[in-house]
Amino acid sequence: MKFTLNGSERTVEADGNMPLLWALRDVVGLTGTKFGCGAALCGACTVHVDGAPVRSCQTALSDVEGKSVITIEGVGGEVGTAVVAAWRKLDVVQCGYCQSGQIMSAVGLLSENRKPTDEDIDTAMDGNVCRCATYQRIRAAIHEAASNLA
């Protein structure tokens, strides 16, 4: 299976039905993308495929053939850098386990909408569970990143 991963061409030898999540973690060895539910219910596995956030636990490896996949390890650019900086400035993380997915969803949101309202944040981020309940800081960090992108 051929696709672009964090900007480089990759060929991954694995069953095309294997979820992208497990292909990334177990075959490619990129473990920043996390497993939380395996059922599109928590967002821990969020990656970008052709720029849009998707749940990699519900995306077959064959679905990304020829496409561009960005994982937490490949976050960059104007929006990605602003989001990560805001996360660090506000010390959003607690256990940190959900945060790769949170950051991927937040980058997705801010790439589409540079000035999200609280309601926009609720809509974009409700699929990302944080059992440590860092939600207040995630919200603040998204606003912080937005203000730095203006």
Binding site: L30, T31, F35, V75, D91, V93, G96, S100, I103
Partner: peptide, 21 residues
């Protein structure tokens, strides 16, 4: 004081048991 774990937990580098190979 800033947390010691913020950087590694925002770029995918922090290693949890699930990441051990």
């Amino acid at each position: 004081l800033p947390r010691l774990d913020s950087a590694d937990k925002t770029d995918g580098k922090a290693v949890y048991a699930l990441d051990i190979r």
